[in-house]
Each structure stands twice: as C-alpha cells, then as structure tokens.
Design a protein around this nucleic acid. Structure first.
Length: 496
RNA sequence: GACCGGGUAGCUCAGUCGGUAGAGCAACGGACUUUUAAUCCGUAGGCCCUGGGUUCGAGCCCCAGCCCGGUCACCA
C-alpha cells in the first residue's frame, strides 16, 4: 500500500474488486487456455464457412453497453477483436458481471465468430471470465471510425517512466520494440552465418578501454577494489582473437558517464565484431552487406524514406576521404594546418576553453561541425588522422593516417571500424600518448592496459574490427527521432 | 551545465484584465437486445508541480527550487 492517495477512479475500481470477491469471482486468475489470438480468430472466420469456436484472451480496450446487449473490444499482442454479449445468451449471472468490469481488465472469452450487421467480425460470447482486474485506469483514449486516436497517452515523461502503460496503450510502441528484436535477430543470424561466434565479456572491468569516454565507477566489496562499467567490449574481444577465436562478436550494453540527449543514453547497446586476417576494407564490405541485407529483410526494399529523405542502401556505398571532407567543408588542410588555424576555424562554435583544446579535439570538432550533417546517404568516411585513433593500425603508405572508417547515415554515426593495431610496442606508445593527454586534462583519454599489451605480445593476427550502435540503427529503421523511443526503459532522473 | 518551452480532474487540453476552477473522454447513477469516438438524462471528481513574495485578493505577476521536453555544450 502506498501513501499516495487514490483517485476517485481507483476507489471505484477497488469497490468493484470487493464486489467481485463477494460474488465468489476470482479477480486474478491463474491462466486461460486460448485457442486463438485476436488475429487468428478473425482469419479463421474469413477462411471458413463453418461455425468457428474460439477462446481468446486480452485486455478490454473499449466497452459499449446497450442495456441487454454489450459490445467491446479486447486487445492482445496480435491486434484487437470485437466481442458481443446478449443477456439472454450468457445468462443473468454472467451479464451482471459486466457491470463490474473496467477498461483495462484482462478477459478470457469463449464463443463463436460471427459478422455483425455493420460488417465487423466479432466474438459472440457464450462465457466470459475475468482473468485480471485493472485497478488503475489506463489512458486508453479513443479511436474514431477513421482510425484517428483521440486523447490517450501523450505526455513524454509518462510514456518513458510508465513504459508498461505506453506499451499497453500504443500498438506502434510495441511494433517499434518488435522491430528492434527483429533487427538484432538478423544481425546475429548474419554473423552466425559467416562463421562468427557470439561471446560474452566482462561488463565489470578493473580498467576501462576500447573507446574514449568517461566511465561509471563502482566498488566491489569482496575484492576491495574499484571497478568500472565497460565503455566498450573491444579489448576483450581482441583478446579472444589472440586466443584463436578467429571470428567473434558480442551484442551488449556499454555504459558511458555522459549527458542524455536525443542520440545518447548512458547505457546503450553495441554490436562489436572482429575477424582475423581481415582489414578495414574487408570489414567495410561486410558492414555494407550486413546492413543492406538488414534493410531488405525488415523493410522489403533497398530504399527507405526516413525523416523526409529517401535513403538508398544499394551497395557499394561511397568511400569518402576524411581529410578531403574536412578540406572541402571547413577549408582546412589537416596535413599542413597549424593548431592555431584549426582553432580559428572553430571560433564562434560555442566550444568551451577553445584555447586549451588539444589538436585531437580540434580535428574532431572540425569534422563534427562542418562535415557530419552533410553525410546523408549511407557512406563510409575513411582514413582518419592517426592521433584520434589510438587502437587502429597506421595506413599503409601514409603513417599520418589510420586504417579506420566510420559509417554515416543522415548525419548520424552508426559504425566505427579499423584495421586493428596488433604491434604491441606501438600500442604501448599510443597508450603513452593517451596518458600524456590525460595528464593534460583529457578525462576521456584511454587508460593504459598492460594486460591487453601482454595479450598482443603473444601475437594477434591481422584483424579487422567494427562497432555498431544498435540503438541508433533501430532509430533509423523505426524512424524514431529520439533514442528513448527505441530503449524500453530509458534513463530518467529518479522520481523523488 | 546554459538558454527556451511546459507542469491545471484518471487522460488530453482550455483558462480573458489578477476577482469563488472549465470542456471532451474516462468514472458513477439511470434508459437502451447489432454497437463501434454508441446515444440520451443525471451526478461526482481539483495540493492548478513545490516553497516563498507582491496584493484586499494569485492557476495567472515576482523570486527560488523540482521534474519533463527542445536547442546548444559535453559525449563515438
């Protein structure tokens, strides 16, 4: 029992609950043997001339009482179906039960399918069973004959905080999460079919790495040590490669101690995969094949319209040179320009402490502010400056660059990949540079991971690897403007 | 973290110049044996986010805070 006072609506339902119990009705049943879902009940009727007996169950989402007859709709995970009761068919006792029902209650209905005179295929109920009473009113709203939803649950905060209510009320919310599940299932099947092995690596790590970000810190009592929630799976997956698991992937949560906005949730789902004897060019082709296949399988087409733009997933996708893009859109040549020039280009871009920002961040800033928004159609940006890529191999023939690419669609970064650095001595030197950056005040700089270097010293084969932000991928597929719309229970400040 | 917008009945919203708080849906009572935003008659329902202040009087004006959303910053 909460201290929260109940609304009069809830009081009314409590009274009905008591009345039901008084009559010997079990208000929270133990099960109901269904023969049909809402949709199969409708389908079986249309495909048969014979009488179709059904047992369906669902939540009451509409109720229209007309004296001695009553219409309503129940909704299950497949859809909705109308039901109809006549007092002289179900009997006085059952019919009086209706008085004690509310929108939101779960019902089991036994009856036969028929078509009403207005044409709707409907369950003619012979027996009705309350399966679970709803003590709070669901914000169901109403749908008119044109299918337009009126009222209902609109408040964004409630939709996220009470996702159960959002899901219960909005079929399209349920559809988004079904789509998410289908997408993840496809990614698994694709990688499995390519001979990849799915693995699980630690989420609680003594050192964090594999990305540049601030971690969540926690304390493990039994070991009397600080631990970090992982910011990436990368370094553990590459340990697997060292160990001879030539193709591995993991789909799991990463945690980054950062702000929340339309594209960021502090815990999010990442797919990372690594393939021995592949380089970033091979990975690019694999990503292209995988995501093209994903769109075709889920959307049934190679071109999808999202946020008013038709996106064409037909391969090959353009490979655009990072340095060229920055030169083209920011007018700066990263090969020759001094820090001062980069800084000057970024003036008036609302960057705090611009004067003390290190070169790596200046480069990042130029790309973000001048280039990202221009990358609408699926495209790969290739060959990043080496100084912003501490885990990537230098580019063959140009040590100022790394063999790295990112995939962009509609200005959003969806994948990050490279030919993995497997020279342990060079990796140590890169870590040292990161340590210097950290000492200069860069809280996101990479930590030095001696154990990872040890692993590399045992010899890691040439390897291509990639990380894909699953939430952002689903946002694109579901045309969701906010990452919160594709995460069932997004982060919110706790209620006080 | 900064700026902008929002917070009023279970839900969606209105609220004039500062003068006793409104609608639709949902709820409750009644009528109604093929309705579908059912209809008709009636009834009830409010910590106007919280705390201060101004005022004879505050949902409304002022200050502070809380929560949400948006933009920006931070952030692969």
């Amino acid at each position: 029992m909460t201290l929260e006072t109940r609304s009069f609506v809830e009081e009314a339902r409590r009274e009905k609950l008591a009345a039901l119990r008084e009559r010997g009705v079990v208000p929270f049943e133990y099960g109901f043997a269904r023969t049909h879902t809402a949709v199969t009940a409708l389908e079986d009727y249309t495909s048969s001339d014979q009488e179709v007996a059904v047992r369906v169950a669902g939540r009451v989402i509409a109720l229209r009482a007309h004296g001695k007859t009553t219409f309503g709709h129940v909704s299950d995970h497949t859809g909705r179906v109308q039901f109809f009761l006549r007092r002289d068919e179900v009997g006085e006792e059952q019919y009086r039960l209706l008085k004690l029902l509310d929108l939101g209650d779960h019902l089991g209905l036994e009856g036969v399918m028929f078509r009403t005179k207005t044409g709707e295929i409907t369950v003619r109920v012979k027996q009705l069973k309350l399966l679970a009473k709803a003590l709070r009113p669901l914000p169901l709203g109403k749908e008119d004959s044109a299918g337009v939803q009126h009222s209902g649950l609109v408040d964004a905060e409630t939709r996220y905080r009470e996702r159960y209510a959002d899901l219960a009320v909005h079929a399209d919310t349920r559809a988004t999460f079904r789509l998410r599940a289908q997408a993840i299932s496809y990614l698994r099947r694709f990688l499995d079919s390519k001979g990849y092995v799915e693995v699980e690596t630690p989420a609680l790590q003594p050192l964090y790495g594999g990305a540049l970000a601030r971690p969540f810190v926690t304390y493990y009592n039994a070991l009397e040590a600080e631990f970090y929630l992982r910011i990436a799976t990368e370094l553990y997956l590459k340990r697997c490669i060292v160990g001879g698991m030539d193709r591995v992937y993991e789909i799991g949560k990463d945690f980054r101690n950062e702000g929340i906005d339309r594209e960021h949730n502090p815990e999010f789902t990442m797919l990372e995969f690594y393939e021995a004897y592949a380089d970033y060019g091979d990975i690019m082709c694999l990503v292209e094949e995988m995501l093209h296949g994903l769109v075709v399988e889920l959307m049934g087409t190679e071109k999808i319209e999202r946020f008013g733009v038709t996106l064409d997933f037909r391969p090959p996708w353009p490979r655009l040179d990072y340095t060229d893009l920055v030169r083209e859109h920011a007018g700066v040549d990263l090969r020759t320009a001094e820090d001062a020039v980069l800084r000057a280009t970024l003036v008036n871009r609302d960057i705090p402490d611009l004067d003390s920002v290190p070169r790596t961040k200046l480069i990042d800033g130029l790309f973000k502010h001048f280039v990202e928004d221009t990358l609408v159609q699926p495209c790969f940006v290739v060959d990043y400056p080496i100084e912003v890529s501490p885990l990537a191999k230098p580019k063959r023939g140009d040590p100022a660059l790394a063999e790295r690419f990112e995939l962009f669609i509609q200005g959003s970064e969806l994948a990050n990949a490279f030919s993995e650095l497997n020279d342990p001595d060079e990796q140590r030197a890169r870590f040292d540079a990161q340590t210097a950056a950290r000492e200069a005040g860069d809280a996101e700089a990479h930590q030095i991971d001696e154990d990872y270097i040890k692993a590399l010293e045992y010899g890691m084969p040439p390897t291509g690897g990639c990380g894909i932000g699953v939430d952002r991928l689903v946002m694109l597929l579901a045309e969701s403007p906010s990452i919160r719309d594709v995460i069932l229970f997004p982060m919110l400040r706790p209620e006080t």
